[in-house]
Amino acid sequence: MPMQHVDGENKGKLVLYALSTCGWCKKTRMLLEESGTEYEYIYVDLLEDDELKEIVEQIKKWNPSLSFPTLVVNDEIAIVGFKEDEIRRVIK
């Protein structure tokens, strides 16, 4: 699976489902990177065929409306959209 890994301080397991073209997804990545947080991300619009289907099903479990960004924290909760305050609480 082509998850991209970004090195940084471990603040829990963070998986970001994003689109390469989306402005709020970019803002989410910037927030994570400015804080030096370790995380993984995947650009769903760059996937094709089976890989796309598989990831879409994964995202729907967390966010049935399949919107972006979806940030899954510790396999427990999903933060949908660029909710700056919620994301900051996770990475403080």
Partner: peptide
């Protein structure tokens, strides 16, 4: 890439 100017914040 799609032939139409889809919303960049949604999965086309």
């Amino acid at each position: 890439r799609y032939g139409y100017g889809a919303c960049p914040c949604r999965l086309a």
